[in-house]
Design a protein around this nucleic acid. Structure first.
Lengths: 337, 337
DNA sequence: CTGAAAGCGCTAACAA
DNA sequence: TTGTTAGCGCTTTCAG
């Protein structure tokens, strides 16, 4: 006398209950094969009342697809990763694809271990995100046998990469400053070895040139508020003082705003300010709230998700896709009467 | 003539190459069964050179365990979730357990959908994190058939919950202020409907009482910098002005620091400041850098991971575990000569 | 000490 | 239109 089966109902239980074979149930539930409409309906209804859920592991073993992808990132604060993850999940969850996270560090050794762990879990694809210094080492990502997509940080050239259009974002920002009548527009930004920094500086220079305005040499420093403050102090020593500053990120912009207030310069009246990232905790808390460039990270994630789904289905995609940025105007560039 | 097998090597390939049976390979690789030491070694070595990785899906189907758990959170910025995730992954990855993420919102409907998605992926357990308003609705988490652990936010009473010791953290903070000689210690904090807010207020009151100092009614407001500034303005209207403020989080503390500077009050000389969260982007960027209470979120995650591993193995755990907070002293309470 | 065989839950030919 | 059967890759009795 075998113990009365326990646990969730299997396809067998449904077949038994419906008085048909397992194969028939499978066909009914998957909308495949040729079945009389009413057996199909009957089985579907029955499965539903029995609360039957097909065992994902069995399906996976059968199909060779785990139905999960790996997301590997080295952005420990999650400031960039979370929005990307959100966009990703939003398109992948409805497709029945799950996202396995692995927090890597900058240690390539540890990162390789994470990749191994994810591969051992049989992920159907890998999304690689990173704080973006320049192109990162990706040796351990070669020949994995699954699609690899890079988001927000450039990866190996043969892989598909999604990036925000940094140059375009800078154009948006600087053109906005030009449009509100600013003429002496400075650029205070991050370390020069970031590709994004170079691209934004290009967008800055090119927009000024198009407007026949004098470009200024970008000021490079760390991505911090204190650098923003220091940069303003530096700017204050050389006349004429700018009437606008395009900042490389919101932290720098916020530091600049604080320093300008300490100097008695009004933002936006004396100096208009634009940041980058549209990081709400910074942009909204700053005094005044910062106009900023939004990189649309969740869109980036969503696009990567769609591409991943296609690649899992067999398409082969590669190259670099730039997604547009969006300007979010706030008080730091508000029109003055 | 069948096509020459492709794809990763299976246990069959190893068995063939080793000239033994599949069962033997399984035993060798899993350190189970009774095998002669040298066949075991030989097989292990061979599998290694063949770069054999046991198919996780087949193992899962066999064991009934997917080797993944779900992490569901509604903290869209990831500020609280990421450190928890990190601790979790740190203990779970070496155990071969992956973490599937689902970004819920506050919408219970959507959250239920996420839970269904995770359950469909056959997760072996569920970790629930949240921005913590009070005990959240958890109806959709009942009777899932897998262990559920709540981290950082209180869940259903029958589930295991890991929380930071908010009251203890507050005691640490206020005692520190007492120790550096402050006597008029105010408390500016978040909305009163957060359990954490109530607990911290209790710790505050109890520490003052123990030191024979006059307690002040906590000032409640949103978790924002602007509330920190507003609260200082409010405090400024009632003499005597405090010589220390214990703030409910780092954003409030930072707002307070800014407002105090605008008022010409020196921090820490005139007013010492302690924040909560030890959120680096706030605590370090503030002027001066903030002394803060660290909730040890990654420890919380690590503990939850260990507990989850035990529960998956069959242990049944429940109740609420409080983990200690840690005070991180910085310039905002620095000793003055 | 090792091999053979059953079976985890499901899908997909192929038969009936 | 439906049932039967052979696996997917692995573990685990049970024989030998």
């Amino acid at each position: 006398m075998k113990p009365p089966r326990t646990g969730p109902p299997t396809i067998r239980d449904v077949a038994l209950a419906a008085g048909v074979s397992v194969g028939t149930v499978s066909k009914a539930l998957n909308q495949t094969g040729a079945l009389s409409p009413d057996t199909r309906q009957r089985i579907i209804a029955l499965a539903d009342t029995m609360n039957f859920r097909a065992n994902a592991m069995a399906k996976s073993l059968q199909s060779g697809l785990s139905g999960t992808i790996g997301l590997i990132s080295n952005d420990s604060f999650g400031r960039f990763t979370m929005p990307i993850m959100q966009g990703l999940d939003q398109v992948l969850a409805p497709l029945g694809i799950g996202v396995l996270m692995a927090n890597a560090t900058d240690d390539p050794q540890a990162e390789a271990a994470h990749v191994r762990h994810l591969m051992a879990k049989q992920v159907d694809g890998l999304i690689v995100t990173a704080r973006r210094a320049d192109r990162r080492a990706t040796a351990h990502l070669a020949g994995l046998g699954v699609p690899v997509i890079h988001v927000f940080a450039r990866g190996a050239p043969q892989d598909l990469t999604f990036l925000p259009d940094d140059r375009g974002g800078a154009v948006l920002a600087v053109q906005h400053l030009v449009d509100i009548g600013r003429r002496r527009i400075a650029h205070v930004t991050g370390p020069a070895d970031f590709e994004a920094v170079r691209l934004r500086a290009e967008g800055y220079a090119q927009t000024l040139a198009a407007a026949n305005l004098p470009p200024q040499t970008p000021l490079h420093g760390p991505w911090s508020e204190s650098w923003g403050r220091a940069a303003v102090a530096q700017l204050a020593q050389t006349a004429p003082f700018p009437d606008a500053i395009f900042c490389g990120n919101d932290q720098i912009a916020r530091g600049a705003a604080d320093a300008l207030r300490d100097l008695g310069r009004d933002v936006p009246h004396d100096v208009a300010l634009v940041g980058f990232d549209n990081w709400h905790v910074m942009a909204l808390a700053a005094r005044p709230p910062l106009t900023s460039v939004d990189m649309g990270l969740s869109d980036l994630g969503a696009e990567a998700g769609r591409a991943m789904a296609r690649m899992i289905a067999g398409d082969t995609l590669s190259g670099t896709v730039l997604l547009p940025c969006r300007l979010v105007p706030r008080a730091s560039t508000a029109h003055q009467e």
